[in-house]
Design a binder for these strands. Structure first.
Lengths: 229, 229
DNA sequence: ACAAAAGTGTTTGGAATACACCCATGC
DNA sequence: GCATGGGTGTATTCCAAACACTTTTGT
């Protein structure tokens, strides 16, 4: 092996905070560690960065290995570089957060179900390494982000209803939002395409299915439009 | 030397985007590289992370080496992990941005002045590595940040005037702000302590000197107060 | 006296919130 | 019919931008 530098260097890893939405609550995907250290404890998915891949690629690779999903919303969160965060040796970790559609994920999970599990925000177990800190930062980030970036859609199917979207906002922001104001506000953005379809098997009046007009959003964004809810 | 891992690992570096304010414009500190690669080109201050220091410490160390200043506002910006960003080998860099008082800096600069220089935002030369991208992101970050975090004060002396503070906002946001609205708004926060001193040698009416009430801000922040301008 | 910038107060328009009301569907 | 939630419109409150006016200081 080649060691060109005269001194030791930290190892570089990535971790992913994977958010999903089950229709009611925001959830976070954790895995149960199979090896030491922290064996049998819950942790964020993660792994080391190869020398021939970018850190973004490493994060995507890890996400794919863990959930089978690809091409999802993913963004760098923060880099954690305390000295003792890993008992084995010095490891610096770049944390990412990802938004996935749980329904997509379900299709692929089966293989090794017991070691990966969705947790709601208020039932998070104690985590390995400094992963609680990472998770906390991810939750704060998503709370701030959802206000001024249309990321709620990333957690839903292509076709969704406005009440579903509202449930995401309420779950992430942890507060109730007036149903009618939310409806009016989201409609006024002009970024929703209303379909001629209704929600199926609704207990009562069925909601209209809509899609997010991503093309329109990207065009407006280039012209300086700032999304806000 | 000890190489415990079976495969090559990326090197880990930090870079600092150092902002200062000269009373008129926002400035950025660049250094002229003395060695290859990119010898004689301008670049962001930076260096490798030692295995026995946190990444934050590495950034502070580098800032101190470069400007002599310490205990300034500093925050992690983003981590850059493209494969070819350094022609020598694979280097991942954690970028930071810092806000310094140029007057503090002046006291120490003398030693090796020619290789470090302040640049205004619109006179940035072409930079080494991917540092233009880093700088662009830092500028966007500070533009967003100054709206909802009281960081303008970090660029001024302890005693400053409201028009000076406004000049910082205008310089960072690159737009004019109504003088009177700014005055009223910043005053209404209650976070300024008005001193019984006036600005010296003003061309005309002297402005009142004020200080930022950091203690009060921190207390309010804990209670959920959100600064905003 | 006059110019220039500091400091104070009022008006106004638009956005956010609150909320009344009607509609569709299952039981 | 009635309970439940979807969909629409309006009133009110509040905040930010616009702007008129007064004060202070140097020349």
């Amino acid at each position: 092996m080649d060691c060109r530098y005269k001194y030791e260097r930290p190892a570089l890893a990535i971790n992913c905070v994977i958010f999903g939405f089950d229709g009611v609550k925001l959830k976070i995907l954790l895995i149960k560690r199979g090896i030491e250290p922290f064996k049998n404890q819950w942790a964020l998915p993660g792994g080391f960065v190869n020398v021939n891949e970018t850190i973004d690629e490493a994060a995507q690779r890890e996400l794919k290995e863990e959930t089978g999903v690809d091409h999802v919303f993913m963004e760098q969160l923060y880099t954690f570089g305390s000295i003792d965060r890993d008992p084995r040796e010095r490891v610096v970790s770049v944390a990412y957060f990802a938004l996935v559609r749980i329904s997509d994920y379900k299709l692929i999970a089966g293989s090794d179900a017991s070691n990966a599990q969705w947790f709601t925000m208020n039932s998070i177990p104690s985590l390995a390494f400094d992963h609680s800190v990472i998770l906390e930062m991810a939750i704060n980030r998503i709370k701030g982000k959802i206000r001024y970036q249309p990321i709620g859609f990333e957690l839903l199917d292509d076709k969704f209803t406005i009440p579903q979207l509202q449930a995401i906002y309420e779950s992430i922001l942890e507060r109730k939002i007036d149903r009618r104001n939310f409806y009016n506000k989201i409609k006024k953005t002009g970024l929703l395409i209303f379909l001629d379809e209704k929600q199926q098997k609704a207990a009562h009046r069925a909601a209209t299915l809509v899609t997010f007009d991503k093309d329109k959003y990207l065009k407006l964004k280039e012209q300086g439009y700032a999304f806000e809810i």
